[in-house]
């Protein structure tokens, strides 16, 4: 008893000055950033109640009538639901696989390369596309695909084939979008893999050289295992975002052409139209909520599955 009491009283002593003045100063530094996060990230979450309401501008958010799950039901029963889910999952799945494969490949090739100067030049050129907007990229894509003057159609004509009206050919767009996406992002994405490769202990490679391992064996036995944790984290994050599309890419590159909606209309572009053209804010919010909620569930599922497979992996 006596000892216990003593321990208890000892524990209490630091509690009296729970926060040192240093700590308080550190907290005050956080205040403004946290308020901003509250206003621009947490306050919109309160707006989620709109998903359960029939929003009318004149009645305001609180004054509008409750409609329960009607907005969700309306969306699920519409023709759009299946099409949008299919397009979003397939296209983003394609982007994730192509994006990771390309970034990994280029990082490994870059890692095999000798000479600081040329590595830096290559990196600079590969990152450059990341710094132009999707609007400018849409001009570039148009330069290639314009029905009358485009480079691609010029080539087709020169080799005696029919011109193609690309902005009227939905089936070509999964490839066009994937190529554009990889082109714009691969230089940036491969930096992080390249950095992880540079962090591998060079003794491992020397030992492999002594054992007479060839390049492929080194990639298989040293590089891939070393990149596994990073790959897992990035893949989990990407899977969590699979329902969220790069709005700029879809909206600008397709130039919002209706003829392509069958294949290129994704949840984000539809939500934007629901808001700006149709004006059904309740349903738009409901779709956003589904997107965010399912995304969060996906992140946690992917995290726990990768933990199950290997307890070293996962987000946290």
């Amino acid at each position: 008893m006596g000892i216990n009491k003593e321990i208890a009283s000892r524990k209490k002593i630091p509690k009296k000055n729970k926060y040192s003045s240093d700590d308080i100063q550190l907290y005050t530094l956080c205040i403004i950033p946290m308020v901003l996060v509250f206003i621009f990230n947490y306050l919109p979450m309160a707006g989620i109640i709109l998903a359960f309401k029939d929003y009318k501008y004149d009645k305001g958010i609180l004054g509008s009538n409750w409609v329960g799950l009607y907005n969700f039901k309306f969306f699920f029963e519409s023709n759009e639901f299946l099409k949008l889910t299919r397009n979003t999952l397939l296209l983003n799945g394609l982007f994730i696989i192509a994006g990771i494969a390309a970034a990994l490949l280029i990082a490994i090739l870059l890692f095999c390369l000798r000479g600081r100067k040329n590595i830096r030049i290559y990196q600079t050129l590969m990152i450059t596309p990341h710094f132009i907007s999707w609007v400018v990229v849409s001009y570039m894509v148009y330069a290639f695909l314009s029905p009358q003057h485009g480079i691609v159609n010029n080539i087709l004509e020169n080799i005696g084939m029919e011109k193609v009206d690309w902005y009227n050919t939905p089936m070509a767009w999964p490839i066009i979008l994937t190529v554009s996406g990889v082109w714009k992002n691969v230089g940036m994405d491969c930096i992080i893999y390249y950095a992880a490769l540079m962090n591998i202990d060079s003794a491992l490679f020397e030992a492999a050289d002594v054992d007479g391992a060839n390049t492929v064996e080194k990639i298989k036995n040293i590089i891939i295992p070393a990149l596994k944790p990073l790959l897992t984290v990035l893949t989990i994050l990407k899977i969590g975002g699979i329902l969220r599309s790069d709005f700029g890419m879809f909206y600008q590159l397709t130039r919002d052409v209706g003829a392509l909606y069958d294949i290129t209309d994704v949840i984000d572009t539809y939500t934007y139209r629901v808001m700006s053209v149709i004006g059904n804010l309740g349903m738009g919010t409901a779709i956003g909520l589904l997107q965010s909620g399912v995304g969060m569930i996906l992140v946690f599922s992917a995290h726990y599955i990768s933990k199950k497979i290997d307890s070293e992996l996962g987000l946290f």
Partner: peptide, 26 residues
């Protein structure tokens, strides 16, 4: 102290958000 809570407060916004329309109305 409380670093974990501040981190969660911040990083949670990467996982979940109100979406385009509530932000627009705000």
């Amino acid at each position: 102290k409380g670093k974990g809570k501040i981190s969660i407060y911040l990083y949670f916004t990467m996982l979940f958000g109100g979406g385009m329309i509530p932000t627009y109305i705000l």
